[in-house]
Design a protein around this nucleic acid. Structure first.
Lengths: 223, 223
DNA sequence: AAAATTCTGTCAGCTAGCCGACATTTTTAT
DNA sequence: ATAAAAATGTCGGCTAGCTGACAGAATTTT
């Protein structure tokens, strides 16, 4: 079972010694963004690596017809490099550090072992996007939604025996772009689960009552 | 417009000085495979990096229900690292060099600048798989087929003014797994184009007569 | 506190393209 | 050369899930 964008290998700098980090990153420009603000586009700023200091940003693809697909969500400490045809948007008030690739390259020179970290992070990203492909190609929307819900539950702090209180912080529309579906379909998915008694929908939160059912349905098909 | 798996950044070793390459790779095990042979699976051999010496191999995902999706095709000189949940299969008689990650790591130690190459190749792979995601999410099957055909034409050697002679080397079924569709749909796609007079189907080759039409229809929608 | 915007909820209709199923042709193996 | 297997063609049915459309609720802005 996969994780639809949890905190895997985006923590590029977290394992570097503090003095190095301060040396290189303290000079970098940091900017604040309000919810919904556009942080980067496919062309602009491709000379930077972005580090989320606080808040949450959504990295997404956009097609000329207006449709969008969210590749990943970045939380505090996470990193993203432009160079792909992706957009970045704050979905909560956020602070972002802009690291020029130049600086990055220098760091890589001074600390050669850092290369292994970079390679690791890239590898994780790659694995992650292959998981996304797998999900899109093989699994139908409902399964993807169950898996999304499942991983959401797992990453939620507060958890009792069978009952989870999950905070979402995402609109149905946003969930739709994560899962590759539509607002309406997401909506009916959740409402059906409520009618079924599997969960209770609250304001920006969900109380999962029958976690085992969700887990069961999130399992990949067949053998 | 994207390239559905052309020869971008899979040439990991092609820019290294020859003596280094021989030093590290001459000891490595090389194996021959016949068409259709399974070269690697998701678990096994994850301790190797694969280098295609000759032939062509297909890297693909397989779902328990039997469906498959081809991530990329590897030709001579191309490289792939296990570590993802992918399978590898020879689609022509092939020869593959197995490089233990250990050896790889040593090489990385001796030639630190090699790290940049690795990072580049990984970046390309990542970009490539994001293109695949984009394609799957936003574009309908016909568009994907036109784009596949388009890039096939571009990568074909022999080309006159408007007429291309394209060798495919793939069955409809295989094309289907590349493009994320079914055998039947691929079949009707090509036959319709033939009826339309855009191309002529030959045995394991296609003669494209109206390349501009294909190019036009391969263009992304809208703006 | 009023107005405007953004979300949620629901429903009917439509269609891309998947899924058998089967016949024919081509390729490969014996 | 013959048999077996694989690859092409073609067709009708079926359905997941997208689309638009509209109403009400909840936020946000003024």
């Amino acid at each position: 079972m996969r994780n639809l964008g949890g905190p895997q290998g985006k923590q590029l700098f977290s394992r570097l010694p503090v003095p190095i980090v301060t040396k290189y990153l303290s000079h970098c420009l940091t900017k604040k963004y309000k919810k919904k603000a556009e942080i980067f586009g496919p062309e602009e700023h491709s000379e930077y690596i972005y580090l989320v200091v606080s808040g949450r940003i959504r990295v997404y693809l956009r097609y000329p017809n207006g449709k969008e697909f969210t590749l990943t969500l970045l939380d505090a400490g996470d990193t993203y490099s432009g160079h792909t045809r992706a957009f970045g948007q704050a979905i909560a008030d956020s602070e972002v550090l802009f690291i020029p690739v130049e600086t990055f390259r220098n760091l890589l020179m001074e600390v050669p072992s850092f290369a292994m970290t970079v390679i690791g992070v890239l590898g994780d990203s790659l694995r992650n996007s292959i998981n996304t492909i797998e999900s899109l190609v093989f699994k139908e929307v409902n399964k993807r939604l169950y898996q999304f819900l499942y991983s959401l539950a797992l990453s939620s702090d507060r958890q009792e025996l069978h009952s989870f209180r999950v905070t979402i912080g995402l609109t149905h529309q946003q969930i739709a772009t994560i899962v590759g579906s539509t607002r309406q379909t997401v909506n009916t998915f959740f409402n059906n689960l409520q009618k079924e008694g599997v969960l209770i929908l609250g304001k920006d939160k969900i109380i999962i009552q029958k976690f085992d059912i969700i887990m069961e349905r999130a399992k990949d098909d067949d053998e």
